[in-house]
């Protein structure tokens, strides 16, 4: 049997599934942090989640998804203020299974340098691969990691794009397995689209990625938005399944970061400070 879960992971909120995927009165089983849990939705829409030993687990419904915790969360689920704006649309993209640590998925989400090579001619072009300097900080007061003032040239930044743009990004790691970005909205460059990625870490090296969009775009059909996001994620998935090791090393010597990887450096440092072990690569003694 594996080690007991560390508090930083056990007491955190984790996505379980899309709310729409729970049929009324039909319990659905999910693997979460190497544990089995069961979710049920009643006729009124209320969701209950139980552990395999029958314990009732905390539940928060937000952003079209069910979030739960195996422990006792010290704070509510991360808030995204934009969700309250009347002209925002929510789209959920479903789950994609990936044989990799959920931490690798979060780190890839924070990464801009791969756009020209993995998302060629969509989120980047090979002719403009430079990552300008940006700022990162660990905000200990709210226990989050932020990367701000991020800029990248994108030929097709979103499903609604009509041409290239210098996209501005802000990245926010709200908890080890929940990350989001705020990105120039093509219909209104003064405001930001929000793209969230929540990971259900089923096992240390097996993850389910749930993406959701909070967009200003009101013209593009929802299916087109979802397909755009799925295309991007499938391109990422090839990378994620073929990084070695599958788990995320936290030792600064294990891999070779550069200035473009400042967000990943901050993320790893923060994970280490919080004592996160689930999905972390630990070299053989």
């Amino acid at each position: 049997m594996s080690l007991p879960l560390e508090p930083a992971v056990r007491d955190d909120w984790h996505v379980l599934c899309r709310l729409a995927d729970l049929a009324a009165h039909v319990p659905a089983g999910f693997r979460l942090l190497a544990h089995d849990v069961w979710a049920t939705r009643d006729a009124k829409g209320a969701v209950s989640v139980r552990s395999a030993d029958g314990r009732a687990l905390p539940v928060t419904l937000a952003y079209g998804h069910v979030f739960t915790s195996l422990g006792a969360p010290a704070r509510p689920l991360f808030a995204i203020d934009e969700v309250a704006e009347p002209d925002r649309r929510l789209a959920t993209c479903g789950a994609v299974r990936v044989r990799a640590s959920g931490l690798r998925l979060v780190e890839n989400f924070l990464d801009m340098a791969h756009f020209p090579f993995v998302h060629t001619d969509i989120l980047g072009v090979e002719e403009r691969p430079e990552v300008p300097r940006y700022d990162t900080e660990i905000r200990w007061d709210v226990d989050e990691v932020w990367a701000t003032n991020c800029r990248f040239w994108q030929p097709l930044a979103a499903a609604s794009s009509r041409g290239g743009q210098m996209s501005e990004y802000r990245y926010r790691v709200a908890s080890p397995f929940n990350v989001m970005l705020y990105k120039t909205a093509p219909p209104d460059p003064a405001r930001f689209d929000v793209i969230g990625l929540s990971i259900r870490a089923a096992e240390p090296d097996l993850s389910f990625a749930y993406a959701f969009l909070l967009l200003l775009d009101d013209a593009t059909p929802a299916t087109t938005l979802i397909h755009f996001q799925q295309t991007i994620f499938l391109q990422d998935r090839i990378i994620l399944e073929n990084q070695r090791p599958r788990l995320l090393p936290l030792s600064p010597k294990a891999e070779t970061p550069t200035r473009a990887d400042m967000s990943s450096v901050a993320y790893r440092r923060w994970l280490k400070a919080k004592g996160v072990r689930f999905g972390v690569f630990e070299a053989a003694p």
Binding site: I238, I239, N242, Q243, R244, E255, P257, T258
Partner: peptide
């Protein structure tokens, strides 16, 4: 070795 020193990606890809 089939591993990029940067982020561990398999170089055979």
């Amino acid at each position: 070795a089939d591993r990029c020193p940067h982020r561990g990606m398999r170089l055979s890809f």
